[in-house]
Design a protein around this nucleic acid. Structure first.
Lengths: 343, 343
DNA sequence: GTGAAAGCGCTAACAC
DNA sequence: GTGTTAGCGCTTTCAC
C-alpha cells in the first residue's frame, strides 16, 4: 500500500513525530533535520493520508457551500470567491447543488454532523433561519450569503439591496419617469423583500405616491416576469418603467413586450438585478445591478476561516456582524430614452 | 464531544460491531436487533464520523471533478450530472475550478494521493494525456470528459464532434451555401480538432473543395472569434457562412458583423456549438449544437463508480471503452435565410 | 447472529 | 529538539 509517516521517519532516521512537525511546520525543528525529512518525503513521493489526519486532529480543513444552482452565474461567482480564499488558506471546498430538490438542502447538514466539513456556507434562501440558528447554537460553524440571520455566531454577507434599489428608482426618476412598476421575487427571500423596501423608500423620497397596483409578485423566474408584466398591463393603469427584482424576470418582461409590441425603452424602460451575462447581449441591452458575488464569497470564507482559527470556535471570540458589500448600477439601453434625433 | 458508535451500542444494549453492521446494512442482523439499534441512533441523533470511517475502510466515497471554469454552462451541467449520479450512489463530489491558473490543475492530483477522493474526473483539456496515463498506471481511478485517452483503465466520455460538425456543414449546404468558413478552437483541445475534422470531411462529401484560407484559428474566446472573422474578411475571399467551434466565438463574430454592417443571416450565416443560453436571446438567435453535459457527467460518474466497486480496482476488471454521446443541432435564425417576401 | 479486539495513519502530550 | 506512546472513531476478522 501507500507509504506512511513511519516510512518517511525511518528513511530520514528520525521519529514519526518529527516528520509530523515538519509537515505541519510546527515548533522549532533543527534546520538540518527538517531538510533531511523534506528530502525523504520527496524521495519517496510521500503524501500524508487526509483521513488519518482529520481523525486525529478533528479538523477536515474543508468548507461546504450550499447553493440552489451552480449554473447560475451569481452562485458560480460566489463559489469561486469562496474557493479561492479557502485554497489560499489551505482549505478545500465541497459544493452542494440542491437544484430542484425541495427541502433537500437540509440534508446537507449531515456533512456538518459527519464532520466532513468544518464550516458550511448557505446561499440558499429557502433554508429557514431558525434551523440555521439552532445548528449554530449546537456549536457548528455556519455562514450565510444573501440575507441576515439575527444570530451572534452566524456571519452573513449581503449586498445593499435597499440602497441600490433606491438608486434604480432614482435613475428612473431622473429619466423623467413618474409611474414606475415593480416585479418582486418570492417572499421568503430577504433579497426580494429588501429590494421592494428600497423601491418604496425611493418613491417616498421622490414624492411619488405608492400605488399597490404597480407591484406584482414574481418568483425570480423568467416565466414569472412574463406573467407579471401581462398582469400589470391588464390592469389598464399606466406605467412607463419597470424594476424587476432580478434579470431573469426582466427577460420575461422582454418576452411579453415583444409579443405585445411594446417598445423598450421608449414605451417601457426596464431595470434588472444581477448583471446576468445575457443582459449585455439581448436587444436592447438590459440595465442591471452588478452583484459582487466573488467578493461576497471571498469575504465570508475569510470570516469563517478566522472563526475556525479561534481557540474556542463557536463560543465567544469575535462576533459576527453582517458584512455588507456595495453593488453597482450598470446602465444600458433598456433604461435610457433613445429618441431618434429630428423627431 | 460528539456521540460515538460505542454510545449507540451501549444505548441499544449491543456491541459496536453490530451497530456498524446495521449502519452499513451488512450481513444478516436479526430484525429485532436492527430496529433497537436504529431507534437508538435516532434517539441520540448519531452521525458516524466520516474521517474514522474513511481511515478504516480506505475509501472516501468522494469523487473529484476538475473543470476549467464552473461559470461556463457546459461545465456546470457536467458537474450536475456527476453530482446527481454520485449522490444516488452514496458518493460526495469535490469540485475544483482552476480558472486562469495555468498548470494549476496538476496540483489537484494531490487529492488523489492524499486519498481525499476515490476517483478524479478531468474536464480539463490542458491536462497532458501522458500524465493522466501515468497516474492511472499507479492504480488511481481517473476519468476524462471531452477527449479520449488511449488507455485501458481511463474511461472517457465525449460527444460526437465529427458527426455533428458534418451535420452543421450539411445544413449549410442545404441552405445553398458553398463557401463555408470555419473558426477553430485551440489546438490542444481534441474537441476543436475533431470539429475541424468533421468540417473537412463534410466539405469532401458534398463535393466542395477544401480551401485553407477559409479556416482561421481561435481559442474558444469571444475576442478570438471577433478577430478571426476580421482576418477572414481581410483576405477578400468570399464566404456566406461560418461555423465556429463554440458559441463564444460566434458571439465575437456577431460583434464583428455588427461593427462592419454585415447582416446575419442574409449576408453571413452563423452556427456555433454548446447551445449557450445566450444563443436564444441574442438577435438574431444563434443556431448551435446542444452538448449533453449533464448526461456526460452522469454517465462517466456511473462508470467510475462501477470501477470503484470492483474487487481489484485498476487492475483487470471491466475495460474502459470510450463513451460517445449524441449531440443535437438547434437550428435558429442565424443559419436560415429570411428573405422578406415580395423581394 | 453477535461480541472482542486489533488496527487504519496520524498528531499531541509528555518525556528526555 | 526530538522520541515514545496513546489514542482519534470506526470496521473487520475471528471466536463463540
Amino acid at each position: 500500500m501507500d507509504k506512511k509517516i513511519i516510512d518517511v521517519a525511518r528513511a530520514a532516521g528520525v521519529s514519526p513525530a518529527t516528520v509530523s512537525r515538519v509537515l505541519n511546520n510546527r515548533e522549532l525543528v533543527k534546520e538540518k533535520t527538517r531538510e533531511k525529512v523534506l528530502q525523504a518525503i520527496r524521495d519517496m513521493n510521500y503524501h500524508p493520508n487526509a483521513a488519518a489526519k482529520q481523525l486525529r486532529s478533528q479538523r477536515t480543513m474543508t468548507i461546504g457551500v450550499i447553493v440552489p444552482d451552480i449554473n447560475v452565474s451569481l452562485f458560480a461567482e460566489i463559489i469561486k470567491g469562496v474557493q479561492n480564499k479557502a485554497e489560499s488558506k489551505g482549505y478545500h471546498v465541497i459544493i452542494c447543488d440542491y437544484s430542484g430538490r425541495k427541502g433537500r438542502e437540509q440534508e446537507y447538514f449531515a456533512l456538518l454532523h459527519n464532520r466532513t466539513v468544518d464550516a458550511l456556507i448557505f446561499v440558499s434562501p429557502e433554508m429557514p433561519s431558525e434551523v440555521l440558528a439552532e445548528e449554530a447554537d449546537k456549536g457548528f460553524t455556519i455562514g450565510v450569503i444573501g440575507r441576515q440571520i439575527g444570530h451572534d455566531s452566524i456571519p452573513c454577507c449581503c449586498t445593499d439591496n435597499v440602497e441600490f434599489s433606491m438608486e434604480v428608482v432614482g435613475h428612473f426618476v431622473r429619466q423623467g419617469h413618474r409611474r414606475i412598476a415593480f416585479i418582486s421575487g418570492y417572499q421568503e427571500a430577504t433579497d426580494a423583500y429588501e429590494r421592494l423596501e428600497g423601491y418604496m423608500k425611493a418613491l417616498h423620497r421622490h414624492g411619488l405616491g405608492f400605488e399597490p397596483e404597480l407591484i406584482e409578485k414574481g418568483d425570480f423566474s423568467e416565466e414569472s416576469g412574463y406573467r407579471a408584466l401581462l398582469r400589470l398591463r391588464e390592469k389598464g393603469i399606466p406605467f412607463t418603467a419597470v424594476y424587476t427584482a432580478n434579470d431573469e424576470m426582466a427577460l420575461g418582461v422582454y418576452k411579453a413586450c415583444g409579443e405585445r409590441g411594446i417598445h423598450i425603452p421608449d414605451e417601457l424602460a426596464v431595470f434588472g438585478v444581477d448583471n446576468n451575462r445575457i443582459s449585455r447581449y439581448i436587444t436592447p441591452n438590459l440595465s442591471s445591478v452588478e452583484q459582487p458575488g466573488y467578493l461576497m464569497g471571498s469575504m465570508l470564507a475569510e470570516k469563517l476561516i478566522a472563526i475556525l482559527g479561534e481557540d474556542k470556535p463557536g463560543s465567544g471570540g469575535m462576533t459576527a456582524g453582517p458584512i455588507e458589500v456595495k453593488s453597482r448600477l450598470i446602465i444600458r439601453e433598456s433604461s435610457t430614452f433613445v429618441r431618434p434625433s429630428g423627431r
